[in-house]
Write a protein that binds this DNA or RNA. Structure first.
Lengths: 335, 335
DNA sequence: TCCTGGCACTCGGACTCGACGAGTGCTAAT
DNA sequence: ATTAGCACTCGTCGAGTCCGAGTGCCAGGA
């Protein structure tokens, strides 16, 4: 019986603290009347919650604030919240007229940062094995060439390669014809085998290996993984809840793709609908005061979209927004 | 004759304030001995400088700090500073093995943010009119297609278009052949005329206009202008000199491409080697506590690279770094 | 067994007050 | 034109004080 009320007390503390950014005391909770018990009873519950490590008091004569564990417990027993109708409409109108993948990602990240008032993060979908549709080589000066690979799933990879020693125009044109003839329509092991053979041919141009590598890589899934973010100002904004010194490291972590990608991968592995990392659960010193809410999108849950903010964030709202944007992104990306 | 010394006093104040982040007083300057006069004399000069609006005191019993005007005067009479040898090497090694334009820009912006310890900004070069090398269309589902345009100057533009009503495979293939035949090798008015004619042909596919538009746009100079930035954490870092509340608006302005682009355009018009906007000179409320140092790069000074930081920044060092990176970028981009 | 009212206690925040000292402007002397 | 000296201003810092929010605990009541 008291177990259930204690959950309610925790919930009230989390909600109160998130709303006011100030420690919440037993009196305030009792006055709110939503619990229907006196402050003394609440105090007793608080003592137990504190013993369980779910809440803490910053100093003796202050109210309680949730610990990371407290937020965790709060989040775990949270029922999915519906997204406000206005936000749903916003998602539709914002994303519907995007023209390409870049555009979709760009718009999504901006939208999500506005919906959540947090820093939004979108990982570019990591694409699957795909056949090669066309390879284009464009000479740039005597020593370089641009390689453009168009895959069957509408990706475009490009890269500049060095030609090394001078290559005659004839040899260049011949190489272009040959590599197209060799690679077109193939994928996977077949593609790799065919290209390796082509590149190893006697009398082959010296840069054939570089082209072959790029083509294989493009077929595999293209460019390296990348995340973009938007809404950094939400971190700095008055009352975000991050102390002055804490936000620089967070910005560093955001620009440091590697850190963020590893974290997102870990979260993807959990396989929940939306997954949440709270404070120290991020396992990153720089992010120890922040939480991340993320959800996978795309076929095979190929990539993640998320929102990052102070641990004292509005979890239900953020989770709803992230979930909704992820769903919408799935629709757009999977077509 | 005191005129010259007053300049020296101003310079000393700027340098002192930039170094210590604290108002500098007459005594401290006199003790530094670089001026060779007593504190009383310096006080007199300070009074005049203050009257001229070049310095101010935060409160009665504090030293002086430079005003925007003071920084301006300091900057205007600044001789070009040489970049430290280590930094020069860094530029070479960091940028030399970039593989494509994206990579160049990305590396540049990171490098510059590290060299200056400010927020670095790089505008994508706005490219010139160019001939069309190849047009590729890839069907995506029944209703969409990806258009890829490769220009002679090695740019790749891509865009998804809606096909509208169903298009047969034959019609699709025919359109691809035709548009290639029509556009290849052309540019400018010729290209536009030819494509308009093609799109207007009787019995043409309904999406021909969309393709034509995109091709013309790609020939003109491609995608819209864009700036990227890096090193946002430098704004937030301890002792950056921005008060807590000021940095959120700055981040907003950075993400708001439009604002930044307009400012950069204005600066480009000034035509100096490196151009500097100090505080209120940016004409943006959000940036009124920051300065921007920018330099054009690329053929015809096509785009800008810059660094943004608090008005109390190290102007000589920043200007040297920006100048150097701009020069290097020019070399890489103009090949 | 659980809840409640009451009470003593703790402790951080805000506020006051005064000493201190950095820095100034002015004046008279060189 | 420069300097030394001096009176004055005013922000910062530390100590001391007060106040009240919030707690823990206990005894009484359902």
């Amino acid at each position: 019986m008291s177990e259930e009320r204690r959950r309610a007390v925790l919930r009230a503390i989390v909600e109160g603290y998130v709303a006011t950014h100030e420690p919440v005391g037993s009196k305030a909770l009792a006055d709110a009347r939503s619990l229907g018990v006196s402050s003394a009873t609440i105090r007793n519950d608080m003592a137990i919650l504190e013993e369980e490590g779910l809440i803490a008091q910053p100093h003796t004569s202050a109210g309680r604030i949730p610990t990371d564990l407290g937020y965790r417990s709060f989040v775990d027993q949270l029922a999915a919240t519906a997204l406000p109708e206005a936000h749903k409409r916003a998602i539709g109108t914002f994303l519907s007229d995007a023209v390409d993948l870049n555009d979709v990602v760009e718009r999504s990240v901006r939208l999500l940062s506005q919906l959540t008032r947090q820093v939004a993060v979108v990982q570019y979908p990591s694409l699957r094995e795909s056949a090669i549709r066309r390879i284009e080589l464009v000479r740039m000066g005597a020593e370089h060439a641009l390689v453009v690979v168009v895959s069957a799933d509408a990706r475009v990879d490009q890269r500049t390669i060095a030609l090394g020693e001078a290559t005659s125009d004839e040899a260049f044109e011949r190489a272009v014809r040959e590599v197209n003839a060799t690679a077109l329509g193939l994928s996977g092991a077949h593609l790799e085998a065919a290209l390796t053979m082509w590149a190893a041919a006697p009398d082959q141009v010296p840069w054939a290996g570089a082209v072959a590598d790029l083509v294989v890589q493009a077929a595999r899934g293209g460019t390296v993984e990348r995340v973009v973010f938007a809404g950094a100002s939400n971190l700095a904004r008055q009352g975000s809840g991050l102390e002055a010194g804490t936000i620089a490291p967070v910005l560093d972590a955001l620009e440091e793709q590697v850190v963020l990608l590893r974290l997102l991968h870990e979260m993807a592995a959990e396989g929940d609908d939306v997954s949440v990392r709270i404070g120290a659960e991020t396992h990153h010193e720089a992010l120890s005061r922040t939480s991340i809410v993320a959800a996978a999108y795309g076929r095979d849950a190929a990539a993640l979209v998320g929102a990052l903010g102070p641990t004292r964030m509005d979890y239900p709202g953020t989770m709803a927004a992230v979930r909704a944007v992820a769903r919408y992104l799935s629709k757009v990306v999977e077509l």
